[in-house]
Design a binder for these strands. Structure first.
Lengths: 336, 336
DNA sequence: CTGTTAGCGCCTTCAA
DNA sequence: TTGAAGGCGCTAACAG
């Protein structure tokens, strides 16, 4: 697999390498007939430019990196697609990375991308500790997070206003007549869960509707499993059945649905169910009502913010985070 | 964002750039105290090596590219993960690309990856016409397909033996007592479907069991939608209900399940259902019996084949394709 | 053990 | 319109 280089083309076409470069890049300062002759030679030798060399000299790669926790989750893979689209639209290429919810892998990818000279990184941090590795690279490459970041690390984020989301979910269930609310699938490490749960409780309290968070400290690899197992656990607890359940996320809600099916519980006949995130994956049974921001809007905003930083060479901490307004997406998992 | 280079480090540490390079790459021929001094300077200036420059001179990127048709499908994203794992295990990095089932995007990525000097490409071609663009780059970079390729393009593939798969599915249903078989979700453009359907029919015929392919030329963006709509269409056709259905794929099967639910049809009580591919995604309701090869085995094999080509510089057409043996994965969508 | 030097493939002045 | 030459950041001989 010997590489054909610009030099080979030059020799073959009997011109200088400068002319070849000019021809390839559509620059002017070269006669049309020479250009077409050169291009023909390229064809013939099936020449492929070496992007590494080009990026090295131009000091631009026109590439950003995206790091997500779990490519197999429909939620994250949709975000990846939307983000890619947004980047492509602005003329940037994208490198996709899957951190697999492992801090180690996340850090490795951060490093890898920095070394590959990506001009910016869009990252969905897997947890609060992610900021440690992120701040390690913040001086080398602009970053935008897709999750609220704790602490003052100077990295801007673009995410949903989860407090609003929790309130919207609670208000909706109450408006549909629910009078005994439960939050299932809570995982305290997730900041988003904390916000959702807290404002859920607050809203219920303000309206004097009994509500509680089912806290079950068992953890599982996926949100689906967490939902499934937490709810099974709840069913065995002997606690009274709620008439409205807020799941910590849509994936969690799907787990709850599975547990219900195994126990002959029907949704929405036996209780109303609402989730967060608006996973758009098509499921054979459930049509889940949910609260979420527009994924497209979120990714567009994030990419725009990131490329803004890239293009104006914004130093660390030069940009402001943004919280997007979530909306209710009504489907058929709530009665009334 | 001015880059810190090896030169800056050398100046700051009062040594030559060669020493810095040696220190960074853990080579010997440098005293320990000098090395640690250099490394400290790197820390302090938060130096990140420029991978482009390094790859350029080493003429190696230790990177392969993976192109899949749909990152949002759990099937493909699982393959991506398995392939990444296999590549990482062998010390290669991976660039993930999503062709979105578009020939244009597929070709663009092929080109992009070649320009980025990936050392090999693993591709799940979106269709027979993919070979056109693939053969355009076959002289620049080794490739392995994850799908059977038509024609003599010299590109090896690693995929399931779909004829066997079709036979296994048919035999299983028959062994479970099904006596009226139907194949749903057929899309003639997909070679795999053709194999599956043909050997399904053949097997049934050999055993003298009535069987047919429900041909419905409506097409949809996803297999899920195809399954859903084809089966709804079938239900309205007034044809007699089968007692065993082979879905063109697991995704198709999920669509069928949805149509069943809307029509009060129960699985496996009303008919047995079997799919292909073994999507491992967790679904709230269905537990689908299916026929598939081990994804891990397939990706391991493909990566090994590809890296073999890379490392021994195999010329075009130097390697043989392999067809893997599918197995039955028994779950609970078939009665008996 | 250390530093100097010659490229890797390409783009981009600068002269001609 | 053309070509020669310098350099992007790095590694790998080759001298010392």
């Amino acid at each position: 697999m010997k590489q054909v280089t610009i030099k080979d083309i030059a020799r073959e076409a009997g011109v200088s390498i400068a002319s070849v470069s000019r021809a390839l890049n559509g620059m002017d300062g070269i006669s049309e007939k020479k250009r077409s002759r050169i291009l023909r030679v390229c064809e013939r030798l099936s020449y492929t430019p070496n992007g590494l060399a080009r990026s090295l000299v131009k000091r631009r790669t026109q590439t950003i990196g995206i790091i997500m926790p779990d490519i197999m989750s429909p939620f994250y893979s949709e975000l990846m697609v939307k983000a890619s689209d947004a980047a492509h639209k602005r003329g940037y290429q994208v490198l996709l990375c899957n951190s697999f919810r492992e801090l180690r892998a996340e850090r490795d990818y951060l490093k890898l991308l920095a070394e590959h000279q990506v001009e910016g990184i869009l990252i969905f941090p897997i947890g609060p500790r992610s900021t440690e590795s992120m701040s390690e690279f913040i001086h080398n490459v602009p970053m935008v997070a897709l999750n609220e970041l704790t602490g003052q690390c100077g990295i801007p984020y673009v995410c949903a206003d989860e407090e609003q989301a929790g309130r919207i979910a609670a208000e909706y269930l109450i408006s549909r007549g629910c009078r005994n609310l439960l939050f299932v699938g809570f995982k305290p490490e997730r900041l988003a869960h904390r916000y959702r749960a807290a404002s859920f409780m607050e809203t219920a309290k303000a309206k004097r509707i009994p509500a509680q968070i089912y806290e079950c400290n068992l953890d599982f690899r996926t949100s689906f499993e967490r939902g499934y197992n937490h709810f099974k656990h709840f069913l065995q607890s002997g606690l009274s059945m709620p008439d409205g359940i807020v799941a910590a996320s849509d994936a969690t809600a799907n787990g709850i649905v599975k547990a219900c099916r195994e126990n002959g519980i029907r949704i929405p006949e036996d209780f109303s169910l609402i989730g967060f995130d608006n996973i758009t994956e098509e499921l054979p049974y459930i049509e889940l009502t949910t609260v979420a921001v527009s994924h497209e809007e979120q990714m567009e905003t994030a990419v725009e913010l990131l490329l803004g930083m890239v293009e104006e060479g914004t130093p660390v901490g030069g940009k402001a985070s943004v919280k997007l307004e979530p909306r209710l997406v009504e489907r058929r998992s709530c009665k009334g």
